[in-house]
Amino acid sequence: MMLSRVADRLYWMARYLERTENTARLINVHSSLLMDLPESMEIDWYTLIKIFNAEETFSKHHKVMDEINVMQFMIADRDNMSSIMTSFSGLRENVRTSLDLLPDEAWEQVNQTYIKLQASLSTLNSRHSRQALLRNVMSGCQRIRGVLDSHMSRDHAYDFMQIGKHMERTDMTSRTLEMTALLLSDARSEALRRYDSIVWSGLLSALGARQMYLRHKNSRIEGSEVMDFLVCDRIFPRSLTYSLAHIDQYLARLPEPEAVRTISMRLLEQFEEQDIRAIPVNEIASFMDSLQAELTTLHNKIGKQWFYPDLDISQYRQEKPVGQKQSQVQY
């Protein structure tokens, strides 16, 4: 049995958990990348704001696009829908309201990380303590996921969390790829060209993919191979194809998934047939744009099917005799 409202909360909980960890890693890797690059490049602190399409909100709060403003905005600002504070608070609220479905250690892990995060916000202007903050957030998210993965039954609650996680991951990966493709387009400066491999390597790290790339690709780090790995690899759990396959797989376990799966199956098919290396770098951005639009449609369909269904109980009668237990879903 799974309440519609609770399914909605667990889906979002998993999205926020994924978003928090990914954002922290991205900020951390981006900071490290900037330390390797000379100043006045196309890549700077503000690039982060662009990845999250947060230019408008940022401009309401800040005039100067420097490190401190960008970091305050990306980590602490609750008006920024993608900030770590916003995401982690969203995670915490959704765990708090789903305690009856989650292992109780999850709640404790969430609070531990939250207490540390709150306490470290005042020192985030220092690069050194900011790194510690980001590492705490990442390892906190990993501990929370560890509790969930090792203690939760593989029921619908878990299915919704997996769908939420992979939806968020797909979204984040595609945004990051989109931005990298823009930065490394043919129009990039001569100065930046000299740092191509550092940027591609940074991309792999930002998505936590560097080691697996080196191990499985058997290739040096170069643009088209990196793109291929992050988009098409079938066994790396953060590639787009892998995530799309898992979204579809977990959707298939839910009651009456057919209508929703028409989208996920179509997307998956498209990705499985696509040779990303054949797409010129200039067109990657629009390719990712259209993926994000499809994901939004999928997200809305999921909500309509399971979270806010049209359900008029006042007209409802149960056919089974009272006293008989309703059947449980079997796996």
């Binding site: 049995m1 799974m2 519609s4 399914a7």
Partner: peptide, 21 residues
């Protein structure tokens, strides 16, 4: 908001599988 009374007078909750008593 998760609950409603059905036409048969029983109380149902809104689940992803439809109403459950």
């Amino acid at each position: 908001a998760d609950l409603a009374v059905g036409a048969d007078g029983y109380v149902y909750m809104k689940t992803i599988q439809g109403p459950e008593r």
